[in-house]
Nucleic acid binder design. Structure first.
Length: 641
RNA sequence: GGCGGUGUAGCUCAGCUGGUUAGAGCAGCGGAAUCAUAAUCCGCGUGUCCGGGGUUCAAAUCCCUGCACCGCUACCA
């Protein structure tokens, strides 16, 4: 079976940081493990270059969008290189190949009929709030309390236009079926449930084109429109492997491979629902696995530009070395959970696993061999000695174990299995005390012990090759097996690979111990206020909320809702409108004339598309709700506090 | 509000369909050793398995309920 694995394509306007690096390293490690297993494997990554945001950014910098993308492409490639990412192809959505593939897909969809005989694509009108950053329409409910896009903290625009729609709704049943049956395996389980939950709630058809977009792929059947994000981005997974121009390649990597998509949870819906539906409409094979990895945080804080705690791939690689950085990213926490990176822990892990266990093993074995056997691999007569059975047992079982763990996308457990072997090798070495054998002149046993230990080193380097390929090459070279040594899972299970008499090439320590920088303490955390008990606020905090008395001058139900009232209120001279979820407790006519207490300085928002400029206060317990009003008469506008 | 997830040693986490004294790594403590990168090896954990009920001969593991945190979602604002 071939193995085809993809990362999401990274947005051209972003800066690649450790989050992207993490995704890429996971993918790279998985791909290399499959190579180690002897499978043909293909690793795709790339960039998503179209969209209004790229265009705007280019304009702001006085460049053409293409120029900007070209520049960022070079940066992306450079950044991925620092982590040793060995992708087979980097797809650019501005490439001819991709454009051609997308147009082929669109033409196919244009001619496609849904299972119930309707055309898969139809023309419709779309109106909604559109966030340029997200490249998507967002609903009012998604907005922050300030009415901004939650991801970009920018104000969405109201957009209305004709565009082409994909009849997603006709495919939802089938999609659900495939997810339930496991034909499309969504990992981990929790994410699968989330998708099923989404399907249960129902989704709408989605639009696949935009008329106001310049920077995008032409719609083949309508020159006035450009392709809209998901039908441009998602097909990268097939255009990159020849959907549009290389049927043989496409057949090999799409039809005859295990297809694995890796992603973060933000794009799960599009991958788990939209993508299979599009593929079904185009009568193409479905992907096999969607793996949703967790997000990285840094010292407990979300990694984000605005918080200023973005850490670059280059930085991590510089700090620990390329391969060690990869190891640290992959061995700290399970992929499916969010993980927190902290420098002290990174250094701890580096020193204990890489310097102490692995690096030191290599160093002690090689140096003792060189000192006693003239720098050559000594012969072994295969007799067992102290703890050699334990080591041999691990050597024969670990490869199988590791391959099972990797097939479950559980690299953390695989790492643990490999390290159990490395520790056993250290243990074996200690039990047999080769340094004493040397002093005693027991060369026969010494030869055995060192030969076994050298094989163990070779095996460790073979098993860790997918994670730390460069270091493994160094070890292979040190053992005199390189070049020409193709690490494979089979070779990791054998103890008869090294040839007696081979000259070792001594090298420096592969993982020198590192001292954590003393003042890596970037954390100022909070200005260390006067230590307030949990849940206690100061009077200043309280008065940030401006409470005033308002009079309800008019009130009506919000149509098609059961809980919402729209009310016009007067705060002194100031008139404003608020929406409140109290319709189940108060009739509109009861509200008029009431003096209520409202939060006056709440950021305006929209509820069900209606402006709301404040929030009224009410007391609620169980099924009872009462408005907060004032005792006696006081003019509206009076402050409360 | 609805759905889902998580809550196990100081830290990061394993513990599948219930069954010997609840585990690993790291940190910590004690010891051995000195080939090696002050690395290694051996020994050391009385943990309210979040709380409370229940089912069972037997529950961290199943059921109910409460709490906390997280995710998705909603006519919360």
């Amino acid at each position: 079976m071939n193995f085809y694995i993809t990362t999401p394509i990274y947005y051209a306007n972003a800066e690649l940081h450790i989050g992207h690096g993490y995704t890429s390293v996971i993918t790279d490690v998985l791909k290399r493990f499959h190579t180690l297993f002897g499978e043909e494997s293909f690793f795709l990554t790339g960039m998503d270059e179209h969209g209004a945001k790229v265009e705007e950014a280019a304009l702001a910098q006085g460049k053409t969008p293409q120029q900007l993308c070209d520049e960022n492409y070079l940066k992306f490639v450079e950044s991925l290189k620092t982590l040793g990412i060995s992708y087979n192809h980097f797809i650019r959505t501005t490439s001819d190949r991709h454009k051609k593939g997308v147009q082929k897909l669109l033409t196919t969809l244009w001619n496609a009929k849904t299972p119930d005989g309707q055309s898969a694509i139809y023309q419709g009108k779309y109106e909604g709030l559109y966030c340029i950053g997200c490249e998507k329409f967002i609903t009012e409910k998604e907005l922050t309390p300030e009415g901004l896009c939650p991801n970009h903290l920018s104000k969405p625009k109201l957009v209305s236009e004709n565009n082409w729609f994909f009849r997603l709704t006709s495919y939802l049943d089938k999609v659900e079926e495939h997810i339930r049956s496991g034909r499309i395996r969504i990992m981990p389980e929790g994410r699968r449930n989330e998708v099923l939950g989404l399907l249960k709630q129902g989704l709408n058809d989605f639009s696949i084109s935009r008329e106001r977009l310049n920077w995008g792929i032409d719609i083949p059947f309508d020159p006035s429109q450009k392709t809209y994000v998901w039908v441009d981005a998602l097909p990268n997974y097939i255009t990159a492997i020849g959907y549009g121009d290389d049927p043989e390649m496409f057949d090999k990597w799409w039809n005859k491979s295990q297809v694995v998509h890796l992603m973060g949870r933000d794009i799960l819906k599009f991958h788990a629902i939209f993508w299979p539906a599009l593929l079904m409409a185009a009568e193409l094979r479905l992907p096999d696995i969607m793996f949703i990895h967790g997000y990285l945080s840094l010292n407990g804080q979300k990694i984000s530009k605005s918080l200023g705690n973005v850490i670059s791939n280059e930085h991590l690689a510089e700090q620990f070395g390329r391969d060690a950085a990869r190891y640290l990213l992959v061995s700290q926490f399970p992929f499916h959970l969010d993980g927190d990176i902290s420098y002290p822990r990174l250094y701890e892990k580096y020193n204990s696993d890489l310097a102490n266990d692995y690096g030191n093993l290599v160093s002690r074995v090689v140096k003792l061999t060189i000192a006693n056997f003239d720098g050559k691999i000594p012969p072994s007569d295969g007799t067992s000695d102290d703890h050699s059975d334990e080591l041999a047992g691990l050597i024969s079982t670990t490869p199988q174990k590791v391959s099972e763990q990797i097939r479950n996308i559980d690299v953390l457990s695989a790492v643990e299995s490999i390290w159990a072997l490395i520790r056993a090798a250290n243990r074996y070495f200690d039990y047999n005390k080769p340094w004493e054998l040397a002093k005693q002149g027991n060369h026969a046993k010494l030869a055995n012990v060192l030969h076994r230990s050298l094989e163990a080193v070779r095996i460790a380097a073979t098993l860790t090759w997918p994670i730390m390929p460069q270091k493994s090459e160094v070890v292979f070279n040190m053992l005199g097996v390189a070049p020409g040594y193709q690490p494979s899972i089979d070779l990791a299970g054998r103890q008869d690979v090294l040839k007696a008499g081979t000259v070792l090439n001594p090298l420096d320590n592969i993982f020198p111990r590192l001292q954590a920088p003393k003042e890596e303490k970037v954390e100022t955390a909070k200005p260390a206020d006067t230590e307030l008990p949990e849940g206690i606020v100061t009077i200043d905090d309280f008065f940030k909320t401006k409470l005033v008395v308002a009079e309800v001058v008019a009130c009506e139900n919000v149509p098609e809702t059961s809980k919402l009232l729209k009310l016009q209120i007067a705060i002194g001279e100031d008139k404003r409108q608020i929406v409140a979820g109290v319709a189940e407790y108060y009739k509109p006519e009861e509200m008029v004339g009431k003096k209520i207490v409202v939060v006056a300085n709440l950021k305006p928002t929209k509820i069900r598309g209606i402006d709301s400029n404040g929030m009224l206060l009410a007391a609620k317990k169980g099924k009872e709700l009462k408005l907060v009003t004032v005792d006696g008469d006081i003019p509206s506008g009076a402050t409360v506090g």
